[in-house]
Amino acid sequence: MRTETCGLGSYRADLVETYWRWEQDPALLVGYGRQAPESLEARTEGMAHQLRGENIRFTVYDLADDQPLPVGVATLLPDHSVRTAEFVIMLAPESRGQGTGTAATRLTLDYAFHVTNLRMVWLKVLAPNAGAIRAYEKAGFRHVGPIRQAGYWLGQVCDELVMDALASEFTGPSAIASPVSASR
């Protein structure tokens, strides 16, 4: 799945060290509300489990140049019994603030609604993470409400915001449902 500048591809075991490097970025640790880095050994063990699991994971690619460049991971954590999923995204530090997060989020929602047939996708984001919130809004998420004092941002207690996107409200171009993508 792709747009002109962003694509989603397979989650790849050969990229475990790249994924791990992105996950150790201090800004990402703050954004996830996680305070402790993880060893490469632990991440490699976790990767084996993730590859066998039911979660839907994509490598996010920047397609601006001739060669696709891995720049992040987008994940859906489905609850098939109610046809919903939690959404989580991680971008490399050098890829933030360029619209890649919005494009990857939109492609993941497109997949969730048109391939996996989910009816709703939700996420949690720390309230001070304004850049992520803007990207989620642009991709189609709406605010549901706060979970008060549920997180930490730069050592300070903060709210987590819950946002959701509904299949019935997902509008605009689809990389899956359009006639162009069907002929590829």
Rank of each mutant, 00 (worst) to 15 (best):
R21C: 06
L69N: 15
P146V: 12
A74M: 08
W20H: 09
T84N: 06
Y111K: 08
D164L: 08
V115C: 08
D79E: 10
I147H: 00
G9N: 14
Y152I: 12
S183V: 14
R184K: 13
R96H: 07
E23R: 15
R43N: 09
G151M: 02
V82E: 12
E160V: 03
E4R: 08
L91V: 07
L123W: 00
V125S: 02
P26S: 11
A135W: 01
T171Q: 12
N55R: 14
L154K: 15
R83H: 09
T105N: 03
R34G: 10
G72F: 00
P70A: 05
G46M: 15
Q24W: 09
V144N: 03
R148C: 06
R119L: 14
L28V: 15
I147M: 04
V180Y: 15
R184V: 15
R57Q: 15
V144R: 05
L161I: 01
T102H: 04
C6D: 08
Y152L: 09
W122C: 03
N117S: 09
V121M: 03
T108M: 08
L166K: 01
A74E: 07
A135S: 07
L28N: 13
V162Q: 01
T18L: 13
L126D: 02
A27L: 12
G46S: 12
I176P: 00
A42G: 13
G31K: 03
D62K: 03
R43F: 13
G97D: 02
L107Q: 05
G99A: 07
S39K: 10
A103F: 07
S39W: 03
D65Q: 08
I133W: 04
G99T: 08
D110K: 01
E4A: 11
V60P: 00
P146I: 05
K124P: 00
G97Y: 00
A177L: 14
A167V: 09
Y61F: 05
K124T: 01
G145M: 11
P68N: 07
V16E: 10
T5M: 10
S183N: 15
D62G: 06
E54C: 10
P26G: 01
D62L: 02
A74R: 02
R21L: 05
Q24H: 07
E17Y: 04
L69K: 14
D14P: 03
L29I: 13
F58V: 06
E38K: 13
M1L: 14
S168M: 13
P68H: 12
V82N: 11
V71L: 01
V71A: 01
E17D: 13
Q35P: 09
L118K: 05
Q149P: 01
L76F: 05
W20E: 11
V60C: 03
N129A: 02
T75S: 06
F170M: 06
A175R: 03
Q24N: 09
P26E: 11
L15H: 11
E160S: 04
L107R: 00
L123I: 02
A104H: 03
R184P: 04
Q67Y: 09
G9Q: 07
P70Y: 01
R12S: 05
R21F: 07
K124C: 00
A127G: 03
V125P: 04
C6G: 08
R142S: 09
L154F: 13
F113I: 09
R83K: 09
L15V: 13
Y136G: 00
R21T: 13
A42I: 12
G53P: 04
E169A: 14
I89A: 02
G99V: 06
I89P: 00
P68V: 10
V82D: 14
Q149R: 04
R142A: 05
W20Y: 10
S181H: 15
R21Y: 06
